[in-house]
Amino acid sequence: MGLFSIITLLAVYLAIFLIGMTVMRSGLLQLSEERTKGYLTKFTDMPWKGLLIGILITGLLQSSSAVMVITVGLVAAGYLTFYQSIGIMLGSNIGSTFITELITIDISQLIFPMLIIGFLFLFSKKKLPFSFGSSIFGLGCLFVAMNGFESLAIPLAGFPSVQDMLAMTNDHHLFGVGIGTLLTAVIQSSSATTGISMSFLNNDLLSLPAGIAIMLGANIGTCVTAFLASIGSIREAKLTAYAHIWLNVIGVAVFFPLIPWLSGLVSMLASSADVQLAHSSLIFNVISSALALPFVRPFARFVERLHG
């Protein structure tokens, strides 16, 4: 298989993954968009409440980027303050790890039925069946894409340039952080970046510490969406986007020296490489958010002084 064919197939599977995320999210939004805005505005007066709401909504919508775009929009509209938005950010980082845990489950025999059932329900004019169909069909697309990434990992790694990149990532973890940041900024999905890393991990082409480095970078790259949403908005909306960037950059900076420790910990928790990477994402985001939660007010002042 030639390099052009592999890259074309990789682009197709990536498109399937992103389409699956979009379809699944759109179905859930049909039911919960107004409710989501209500929860965000009513129950975020304290940072810990915002964190819980951020986890809940991001877990439901399966996209921290979508939640951050909604949050920036609500801040811009005056429904939320910049201070209230920080708790939601912390929760959205935790909620975003659910999809990476989900795609490690082996349900290969159920993928085709999920696609058929979901596709049929998409023709329903009623909100509940349509939402169910969108969720099932979108989830099926995610697993199709993951299987595709897996099948392309070894052929792709056969090319010298890719081998050099993998070797560089295995040897220099900071390079892995850069790859994760750049790839996520381009494709607008940290879950897809992590999914691609999992395929290399499962084929022993990428070390677990290198996969963790890419995952850390993906957390920075996912901030691009909220930043773009804040362009042209009021000052508080821009502060929200800047705070999202700083939270993730600081979290990654703190955890970067701890990659060997995190790698050893998740190796004890699971035997499968993709599950280990999913667990590392969960642990990183839970610890980062828990450590940041008591310092929300001084952190808000820091962002206001820096970008005011």
Rank of each mutant, 00 (worst) to 15 (best):
A226D: 11
D171S: 15
G180Q: 09
V254N: 01
L277A: 03
L205W: 00
A290W: 08
L206D: 03
F175T: 09
T181Y: 01
S272I: 08
A218R: 02
S230Y: 02
F227G: 12
L282A: 14
V186M: 06
S189V: 08
V275L: 13
T169Q: 08
V286E: 01
T240S: 13
T184L: 04
M268I: 15
A270H: 07
P209T: 12
V296C: 08
V186F: 02
L258Q: 07
A213E: 05
G221R: 02
T225F: 00
I220H: 02
A270E: 10
P260Q: 08
S233Y: 13
R297D: 14
S288N: 14
V186I: 14
V266G: 03
N202P: 03
P209W: 03
L201S: 01
L247W: 05
W261S: 14
G251D: 10
A243L: 10
L277D: 01
L265S: 05
G264P: 05
T193Y: 01
I259D: 00
E236I: 05
L228H: 09
T181L: 15
A229G: 01
S230E: 12
T181G: 01
M268P: 07
I259P: 00
A243C: 07
L291N: 11
S280D: 07
F175C: 10
M168W: 13
I196C: 08
D171K: 11
G176E: 09
P294H: 09
L183E: 00
S207Q: 11
L228K: 12
L269F: 09
A229N: 09
C223E: 10
A253T: 12
L201A: 06
G221S: 05
S289G: 08
L201F: 07
A273G: 10
H244P: 04
V296L: 06
T240H: 04
T225E: 06
L258C: 07
C223I: 04
L277H: 00
L282D: 11
I287L: 12
S272Q: 10
W246M: 15
H172Y: 15
G217D: 03
F284T: 08
T181W: 06
F295S: 12
I231K: 14
Q276A: 11
H173D: 02
F200E: 06
L216V: 03
N219T: 06
E236V: 03
M268K: 14
M168G: 09
P294N: 12
G264R: 09
V177H: 02
L247P: 00
G251E: 10
M215P: 00
I283L: 07
V249L: 15
F255S: 15
A290H: 08
S190C: 06
G217T: 04
I283A: 01
S271A: 14
I196N: 01
L269C: 05
G232A: 04
G195Q: 02
L239E: 01
A270L: 03
T194V: 15
